[in-house]
Each structure stands twice: as structure tokens, then as C-alpha cells.
Design a binder for these strands. Structure first.
Lengths: 225, 225
DNA sequence: GGTCACCGAGTGGAATTCAATCATCCTGGT
DNA sequence: ACCAGGATGATTGAATTCCACTCGGTGACC
């Protein structure tokens, strides 16, 4: 089975985001505490106005402690982003497991539901839309979208027999970009998410993918080959 | 005729982005010079790494001059964004005028073409994807999208008899968000724009709007009422 | 006793201010 | 027409402030 595959294997300290791996157990709490604080601050002031001092104060730590764990300010944002992505993937897996899936559409629907749910409940979740404009060549939003598209492709191929290949990955990447944009728009003003945009997001995704992967389209594809 | 309507009336100093309206003529040149400098710097270092000093130096001015015209650093970015949007709208109008439009689709196609063209030729045009995460309650990307959707709706209603109303505006706003996302993705890495994403953008827009505004859909709508 | 964690004043660089200076426009006197 | 010289616009850049980030010193754990 491949649902768990969405989670991806451990990313190995996520490309050096954490400066020092905590050795003593209390530090683990510190680390997540810092991220919790950052998440709260993100919700309050947005992720540009955030300052290292705010994070430290909110976490009941000193500036130095922040820098003990993260090399710089954006590393904290990256880590928060990464945590949000991981939780998102976990939630998707949970939703997939809890639902009865009759077609690939149900899986896509679960993804949207998971995203919306986290946007509503997870503090600072909007960090998922954090696009690093710096020169950082490594991890960024596009890489995330690409990674997620590949993972989702695996699931759809294995569970629903969609035809594997670059086309599927590309289309899922397109779908991810569109969904990101529409859901971000849904939550731009309304903290509960504008239902119109959420519904339209589901519709758009389904229509777009149906074009290629509806039963009819797949039949055509099968007979043509 | 209503194509010109896309341009919108003068926004009246664009909601106070400019600190002091220039009185003497040399200042007008200064102002656009500052924006040109900012655009160049944006292309060189991205719009986070940009510093007021860089802008000033590039424009052959001193720091103080920047602050004479703009209250702060992000105001410069806003102004640059605004100028890019204005030029985009102008380009759309030009393209619309230069093309023979046989259906609303041609108009939508022109919009995409204009956007892609500017991304390629206009220095710093990627600023259009600048989303102010600050608490700035006023002008922002969503407001732009909304405004543009309304204008485009007017054109489509007047030129191609699409049914006016909130539904049309909403769907165009959805279309704008999707197109923004896909085109931004197309140019994320490739400075000339990844053709696959550009083509897919056109396809997605057409499919999405066809659902509601294809001749068939409109006929159904007409007979139903 | 030797790491591990933590602290917070100190450093440096970038954003922003402001008082002084220069440029242009305007007005009234010739 | 012309010009002096005040008024106002425009420019400057040193001084200030804010913030990310460093580092030597202090306690906590093992």
C-alpha cells in the first residue's frame, strides 16, 4: 500500500534547517515551542513583520536561544513551513484512511478538505503559502508543490490505476498551483475561508483532471493505444 | 465602445502611496527614475533583498530623496507594483485593439498574451506577484484581481454579450487567481516562461469559462429562463 | 568536570529622520 | 521686459533607530 508514501521518508533534518540537534530531552520541547511561538506570531502580524525578538519573547526564551537552533530568521520560517507541510501530509493520509474512496476524485477531495481543515485549525498555517524570494536555491514552495505532486501521483497510480508518467505529474503540479492560489484567496480575508472559493476550487480541480482522467477519457486513451 | 474602460479612471495618487505630489517638472522624472531603478534592482536581487540604498544609488539620488516620495521601503514596491499593473492593463487594451476578436475567448487569450509579454520584456515585472503580507489594509493583490475582474467583465458583457452579474465577476476573479498562479509558476525558474505552464494556463482558463459561457452553455441558460 | 543550554548586552547593517542646503518659481519694483 | 530676493519645492547625507545576529559568560545536566 502506498498511502503512507505521501508522508515521504524522513527528510534528514530538512536540509540543515536546524543548527544543533537537541541532545537533552528538554530541548525538543524548546524547539517545538519556538515553532509554536512563531506560528502564533505569524497569525498576529503576518510573516514579514515577524521579528526574532517576538518569537523569543512569545516562547519565553531569549534571542540567543532562537539562534542556538536556527541559523537565521528565515530558517525559522522555513522550519515552520516544513512542519505545516508535514502536518498537512499527515492529515491527508488520515483523511484518505477515514474515507471510502470510490475514485481518484475522492482522493483529490480529501486533499482539499485536509488543506482547508488545517487552514482553519492550525495556527500559522498560512505559512504554507510562504514563497521564499531569496536566492535560497534549495527548498521552496515550487519544490514542495513538485514533491507533493509526485507523491500524489504515486497514490493515484497505485490506488486508482491512473496512467503513470510525467504527464500525470505535470497535471498534478498544475492542479496544486491552482488549488494553492484559490484556497489562499479563500482565506485571504475570511479566517474561516470563503466557501465560494473553496467550492470553486473543488470544481476546477475535478473539471481539469476529468479532462484527462475521467472514465471516458481513460477509455479513449486505452482504445487508442 | 468599452475597451478603454479596462484602464479605469485615474486612481488619484493611488491611495496615498506617494508622499508628496511633485510640483516641479524635474520631480516627475525623479519619481519614475526611482521606480525604474527599483525595477532594475528587483530583477537583479529580487524584491526582498532590495534596499533603499540600492534604489537611491541606481537612480543617482540620495537616500533622502527616496523618502521624500515614498513613506517607506515597501511603499516603493507598492508603487512599482501599481505601475506594472497599469502597464499591464494598457498592454491588454493594446492587444485587444490589435486583434480581431471573434469570441470572448480571444479576449481572454489576449490577456494571457499581454501578461506573458510583459513578464518577458518589462524590467521588474515580476513585482505583479508581490503580495503584501503586512497589515496594510488598503491596496493589495486581491483588490487588484477583483478590480481587474470587474473591468474585464464589463468588456466581455459589452463586446460578447456574456450575461452580466456577480457570477461573471466571481468566475473571472477565480480565473485571474488561477492564471496568476500558473503564470507565476511558468516564470519561477525560466525567465522566458515555461511554455508548458503557459499553454496549460490558456487551456485551463478556456475550459473553466467554457463550462459557463460556451455557446452551448449560454443556449441552455437562455432556454431555461 | 565537562558538555549542553541558555542568556542578554553588544555589534553591524539597513531603514528612516531631519536640519541644512540648493534649485526653481513667483512677485513686485524698476 | 528685466531683475532682486523671498517663498517654496527638492535634495542631501550625517545621525538615529530598529533589528538580525554574535559571543563571552553563567548555570543545568550527566
Amino acid at each position: 500500500m502506498s498511502l503512507g508514501g505521501l508522508l515521504g521518508e524522513e527528510t534528514g533534518a530538512a536540509l540543515q534547517q536546524v543548527r544543533t540537534e537537541p541532545i537533552q530531552q528538554r530541548s525538543a520541547a524548546r524547539l517545538s515551542g519556538l515553532l509554536d511561538a512563531a506560528a502564533a506570531v505569524v497569525d498576529e502580524v503576518g510573516f514579514d513583520r515577524i521579528t526574532t525578538a517576538m518569537i523569543a519573547e512569545r516562547a519565553g526564551a531569549s534571542i540567543g536561544t532562537v539562534y542556538r537552533y536556527y541559523p537565521d530568521r528565515v530558517a525559522v520560517l522555513h522550519a515552520l513551513h516544513e512542519r505545516a507541510v508535514v502536518r498537512f501530509r499527515q492529515r491527508v493520509v488520515d483523511e484518505l484512511g477515514a474515507s471510502t474512496l470510490t475514485s481518484w476524485w475522492d482522493a483529490v477531495d480529501c486533499v482539499v478538505t485536509a488543506f482547508v481543515g488545517l487552514y482553519r485549525s492550525e495556527p500559522g498555517f498560512r505559512i504554507v503559502n510562504f514563497d521564499d524570494r531569496d536566492g535560497a536555491p534549495a527548498v521552496d514552495a515550487v519544490a514542495d508543490a513538485d514533491f507533493f505532486a509526485r507523491r500524489l501521483a504515486d497514490v493515484l497510480v497505485n490506488e486508482f490505476d491512473l496512467p503513470a508518467g510525467d504527464d500525470l505529474i505535470f497535471r498534478l503540479e498544475v492542479a496544486v498551483e491552482m488549488a494553492d492560489a484559490l484556497l489562499a484567496r479563500a482565506f485571504h480575508t475570511d479566517p474561516l475561508g470563503d466557501e465560494r472559493f473553496i467550492a470553486e476550487c473543488r470544481l476546477v480541480l475535478r473539471d481539469y483532471l476529468d479532462r484527462f482522467y475521467s472514465p471516458q477519457a481513460l477509455n479513449l486513451l486505452a482504445t487508442a493505444s
